[in-house]
Design a protein around this nucleic acid. Structure first.
Lengths: 147, 147
DNA sequence: GCTTGACCTCAAGTGAACTTGAATTTGTAT
DNA sequence: ATACAAATTCAAGTTCACTTGAGGTCAAGC
């Protein structure tokens, strides 16, 4: 009763795929990019620590927030000289701006859904929202969407 | 004093580019995709109504909110049987969810910037944020990022 | 009337983030 | 021992949102 479960505490790629909802190809891709790490193999199959699921949750969160995989990689690296705390704070500030833009967008859409004006663009309320949202600079800094 | 300014109220592509900060190539691309419309030509040059600037501001807002150009096109189309108000409301709800995710991300980053734990993943506060953010479904519906 | 510069079209290229396919390897079940 | 399902690698393909380049055209200035 000692050796049949030699590495039972590790998850193989299929389990990680099932638990995370991500296709195995994506997991391999993430590993190749250095975003996650496998701890060994059983035959050909990669084995992961259970921790990888939290790692993936974090990646997913970051993606949902509009970060590139490279950005995310930079943020969750636990090695390197030191985690760049200023960078993290700057990212947080960026997200704050995005949230404000999103709020405007959401309000604009909700208004548009009820507005009687023939075209959204013709609606003064919508235009006001627009003006607030994009006041001045249309392309100030490349938000955080793309590199 | 009547004909020298025949179409003076229209903007040519260079002016739109200058005023919006977008390269002309992008404006042509947007027109090709049906997101904006030119109203004619002066020689080869496209002419736009001044309104196009608000249109572009709206597109920029939508892009910043993570919508695809196709999504945006669907939202700001003023033609078709009728504007799909339910679709707009659904989009607004989606944005609300995204805002919540972003807020978690932002808080997580701010925390990480100050946290003393050796690895962010080892930090219990961060893990709790993670759990809230990705509770259950990692890839429930494909947020609004891609089609 | 001829040059020039900014715009035109159309095709192809780019980078990010994956996905797909072919050929191969391997643990498990029979 | 053999078959089988599932994972592996590696290269190439896909989508999105543009950009770049080649070759052509036109309004305006000299």
């Amino acid at each position: 009763m000692t050796q049949e479960i030699t590495q039972a505490k590790f998850l193989d790629i299929a389990e990680v795929a099932r638990l995370s909802g991500l296709p195995a190809s994506t997991l391999r891709y993430y590993e190749e990019k250095g975003l996650i790490h496998s701890v060994g193999r059983r035959g050909l199959r990669r084995l992961f620590e259970a921790q990888v699921l939290q790692h993936l949750a974090l990646i997913d969160l970051g993606r949902g927030a509009g970060f590139s995989l490279d950005d995310i990689g930079a943020m969750l690296t636990e090695r390197g000289p030191a985690i760049d705390r200023d960078r993290l704070r700057a990212k947080a500030d960026e997200i704050d701006k995005t949230i404000q833009r999103l709020s405007i967008m959401r309000d604009g859409l909700r208004h548009a859904a009820d507005c009687k004006a023939p075209s959204h663009l013709a609606c003064p309320t919508f235009q006001r929202l627009l003006r607030i949202g994009a006041s001045g600079r249309l392309r100030p800094a490349k938000t955080h969407g793309r590199s």
